[in-house]
Design a protein around this nucleic acid. Structure first.
Length: 499
RNA sequence: GCCGCCAUGGCGCAGUGGUAGCGCAGGGGCCUUUUAAGCCCAGGGUCGCAGGUUCGAAUCCUGCUGGCGGCACCA
């Protein structure tokens, strides 16, 4: 199948009408596209600077924006011009000449440059009385219904630009996201962390438990995987002598989509040599706190309680309290552990030991009930193959920050014992061979790096999209990702044949 | 991957077995202070796609495609 666009670009009848208008305008010397224009102010500022007295002519300005409404009334015409800052009403009368004529011929969605004097109409609307109107970009397609906007969720996500265009308030959440990410970066830099960029194409997708996307490098004739985590490369950098590094970047997991899962998502990971669980809790608190502050400064209303120290609760205690499942008492009685967990309706693989079963109970029965921010600590070593053991060797020095029933961050004192790391990853490899596709693959190069000596360190991973959801009140991850992953439109999946 | 719901002009919607309609947008006209401007006129849809049932299907059935929600997996 070929990838050439259809003849005429698939324009509707109305599109053809607009194309015809563009040709006519061009024939009369009005370029439909490509004219430069330099606004002297924004629509919002222009409106603020309009004279208060009706009919009085004020400052001379130039603004540019998109025409979203045109109202003609015989010898006078009004149009609403919208730029990023807001809107300004344009006004032209028959004696304005060329500008009036042009305004009458333009369509909703066209982008114009408008020059004239600020004034105020009888209705009290700040307006720009046109001296000159310049067509900057002819729109060949109609904007969405002017008062209902775009409602169909498929269109909203597939053509996000129309979603944002038809309802400017939908842009706010992305401004807030930008402010949040800037705050995260700022908080890290303030603490001496250096931002780095590590491979997204990885020969071995390590550092997490997830199904990766696979690709192939032709010249190297090798498979590469899109990273599922950043961890193992940042730890290599700790070996290299860098002591505080972080990366905020796209990460990919080949798993189901849901209101909380997009196949590509933004992960923040930070590693601190000579840090540990405690220093990571401090950092986590600071990151969430400054992000919440930035979001609030940008008009969001983050939940209460994100600036105060989060309580710490041990996983075993939480599980005992909420389900009556006493992991410590049952630990050495394998058949009892699995029987009690099954009674609770919890599912887990047949190969699971007591730690994995405890985690399954927590994950399936407890986590979603945790509404207020809490540091859940003491994950079983069995489910923490990259974390250091705590004083009780069954549990790792690890915490997860849980808010509104969802993991927001995951951190631990990093395992820097290469001998133990080797055997833990070998165990993961055994689980893989036993059919657990999501157990971590063995990465010899990473273990070798540890053998050169990695300083004791703390590390943290934080789900940026979910943090943005929490701080902005978005219920769906698609509302905080500009272009969420969707099934390709029909006929779009044939590109591979041509590569 | 499984289950449920949804798909009607460019956009937003109505139409539950009798041959498709409304608002906005678009075309023609009137109107010199409008704010989703108003008024008049004339257009625009093989009802997501493919089959089936029926004298007759937007409507009922099956399959497919796409979306949404839930489950599973996970952040």
């Amino acid at each position: 199948m070929n990838q050439s666009p259809p003849e005429g670009g698939g324009l509707s009848e109305i599109g053809e009408e607009r194309r015809r208008k563009a040709v006519e305008l061009a024939a009369r010397g009005v370029k439909p596209w490509g004219t430069d224009f330099h606004p002297t102010t924004s629509c919002r500022d222009a409106a603020l600077n309009a004279p208060t007295e009706v009919g009085k002519q004020g400052l001379e300005v130039a603004v540019a924006g998109r025409l979203l409404r045109i109202r003609r009334s015989g010898g006078i015409a009004f149009a609403d011009c919208l730029d990023e800052s807001g809107g300004l009403q344009l006004l032209a009368t028959r004696d304005t000449g060329v500008a009036f004529e042009l305004l009458a011929q333009l369509d909703l969605g066209d982008i114009v440059g408008a020059e004239g004097k600020l004034t105020r109409t009888k209705a009290g609307e700040p307006s720009l009385s046109l001296d000159r109107l310049t067509l900057l970009s002819k729109s060949l397609r109609q904007p969405a219904a002017k008062h209902r906007g775009l409602v169909d969720p498929e269109l909203r996500y597939r053509r996000r630009y129309l979603d944002l265009l038809s309802d400017p308030s939908r842009r706010e959440i992305f401004r807030q996201r930008s402010a949040i990410v800037r705050a995260l970066r700022g908080a890290l830099e303030k603490r001496g962390f250096m931002e780095v960029e590590t491979p997204i194409l990885q020969p071995i997708p390590g550092g997490g438990e997830a199904r990766p996307f696979v690709s192939h490098h032709h010249a190297l004739d090798s498979d590469f995987y899109l990273r599922i985590a950043i961890e193992l490369y940042l730890k290599r950098l700790l070996v290299s002598g860098f002591e505080r590094v972080f990366e905020i970047g796209r990460t990919f997991r080949n798993e189901g989509l849901s209101p909380r899962h997009n196949p590509e998502f933004t992960l923040l990971e930070a590693y601190e040599a000579y840090g540990n669980l405690e220093s990571m809790m401090d950092l986590c608190q600071a990151l969430v706190g400054s992000a919440a502050e930035a979001a609030a400064d940008c008009g969001a209303v983050p939940p209460e309680g994100l600036r105060r120290p989060f309580p710490r609760l041990k996983m075993v205690d939480l599980v005992l309290e909420r389900t009556g499942f006493d992991a410590l008492a049952l630990w050495d009685q394998p058949s009892e552990v699995s029987a009690r967990a099954r009674e609770l309706g919890v599912e887990f693989p047949a190969t699971a030991g007591p730690g994995r079963i405890l985690f399954a109970v927590y994950d399936q029965r407890v986590e979603r009930e945790l509404d207020q921010p809490v540091f859940v600590t003491g994950h079983p070593v069995e489910v923490s193959p990259l974390a250091r053991r705590g004083d009780d060797p069954r549990f790792a020095e690890r915490f997860e920050l849980v808010v509104a029933g969802r993991e927001l961050a995951n951190a631990f004192s990093e395992l820097n014992d290469p001998v133990e790391q080797r055997s833990r990853l070998m165990e993961q490899a055994r689980l893989r061979d036993a059919g657990e596709a999501e157990a971590q693959p063995f990465d010899e190069d990473f273990v070798e790096a540890l053998e050169h000596g990695m300083p004791p360190a703390g590390g943290i991973g934080l789900g940026v999209d979910r943090l943005v959801m929490l701080l902005t009140g978005a219920a769906n991850i698609r509302d905080v990702v500009l272009f969420p992953t969707l099934r390709p439109a029909a006929g779009a999946s044939t590109l591979r044949d041509t590569l």
